[in-house]
Simulated assay, not measured.
Amino acid sequence: MDQIIDIATEGRHLSRDRGFLKVSENGTEIGRTPLDQIAGVIVHAHGTTWSSSLLVELAERGAAVVLCGANHAPRSVLLPLEGHHAQGGRLRAQWQAKQPLIKQAWKQVIRTKVAMQASALAAMGESDAPLRMMLRRITSGDGTNIEAQAARYYWPRMMGEGFRRDTDAEGVNSLLNYGYTVLRAATARAVVASGLHPSIGLHHSNRGNAFALADDLMEPYRALVDCAARHLVTYNSPQVDLAAKQALARLIAADLPLGDGLTPVSVSLTKLATSLGQSFESGKLALALPRPPDGLIFRGLGR
């Protein structure tokens, strides 16, 4: 199963050693992980160093290297230039995709996101009826901005009346930052592996955002992070400690309904990105979007 490697202690050195990522301190090895099992490396600590050969090996496997600020939000993501055997043609198809297809794709992404939020609230014992009603009003391209309307209803019930989403704040906001960083790394990896370019988004289009498409495609999965963060605050602490990091990193292995079975989040992201690439090439939209899991899965996240 894919693993997330988190480097949070000062002065660590990362290198490649016979198929392993090796972590050393003052010349002494303190841990290693098979390179083939790594989905991403998240670096928080100052003074971290690494070998160029390690970065090349991670790139060849499509593993993202995420450099974070003090608030656990990503500041840089390193990804490989090559990701798919038909990358050139798929990139052209992505760039030339017609607006009606792009808007319909965004509609489906937002419908799935709001459905996930509704199911998450229901699993927490909160009323989900208003979000279910909003699902019916989502139009092509989400022209009426149901996403924002849903967020205004969702956040106070998920995190409490006084909650405000602030990437620079501590407590539960830092937990959300870390969880979204894990999710963003896994999504960016899936996007590149499918032959798409992460900076050409469906909806996110900030010129300074090199990972707009990753931010688009991770939207339906955010509720998993939200539930995990809520549980961590309730049963552990609001701090981004070792237990919290492990719980949030495990989210990429959570099973979601997709097709006729259950699929881990990391695999689901790959299927979604691949289906989008195929839709660009064919001109016919057919996205492999997950369905909300049952309440037991939501209630078990973060514990």
Rank of each mutant, 00 (worst) to 15 (best):
G27A: 12
A8N: 12
I38P: 01
S266V: 08
Y180A: 04
F280P: 00
R165I: 13
D2I: 02
E161R: 13
A45L: 00
A97R: 08
T28E: 15
L35K: 04
R230N: 02
E170R: 11
V192P: 00
A150N: 04
D168G: 10
K113Y: 08
A253M: 08
V77F: 05
R165S: 07
V109W: 02
P220V: 09
A249T: 03
I30R: 14
L55H: 03
R132N: 13
T28D: 12
A243M: 04
R222Y: 11
S76Y: 12
P74M: 09
A288H: 12
R184S: 11
L217C: 06
A249K: 03
R18K: 12
H13M: 11
A73R: 14
T167Y: 12
F20E: 13
R92V: 14
A169L: 12
L272Q: 09
V182W: 05
G195W: 01
E25M: 04
I38F: 06
L276V: 05
L54P: 01
N71S: 15
I146V: 15
A129S: 06
V267N: 02
L175H: 06
Y221W: 14
T48D: 00
A73M: 08
T274E: 05
E57D: 15
L135A: 09
H84E: 11
D142C: 11
G69P: 12
A243F: 11
L183R: 00
E219H: 09
S51W: 09
N236C: 08
L101P: 03
R184D: 09
V172K: 08
D128W: 10
I42C: 05
Y178C: 03
H13R: 14
L101M: 14
E126V: 05
S205E: 07
A247C: 11
R184G: 09
W155N: 09
P34K: 10
A286C: 10
L131Q: 01
V66P: 07
T187S: 08
Y178A: 02
V56G: 08
M134I: 05
E170K: 06
A229I: 03
G302P: 02
T234C: 05
G125S: 04
E29R: 12
Q3L: 15
T112E: 05
Q108A: 09
A118W: 04
F298N: 00
W155L: 15
A63D: 01
R132V: 08
W50K: 05
E57I: 02
A129C: 03
T274F: 00
S174D: 07
L276P: 01
L289G: 06
V267F: 01
E219F: 03
S119W: 01
I7K: 01
R152G: 02
L287H: 06
A188D: 01
F280R: 01
E126G: 05
R164C: 11
D36H: 12
R32K: 15
K98A: 15
G88E: 13
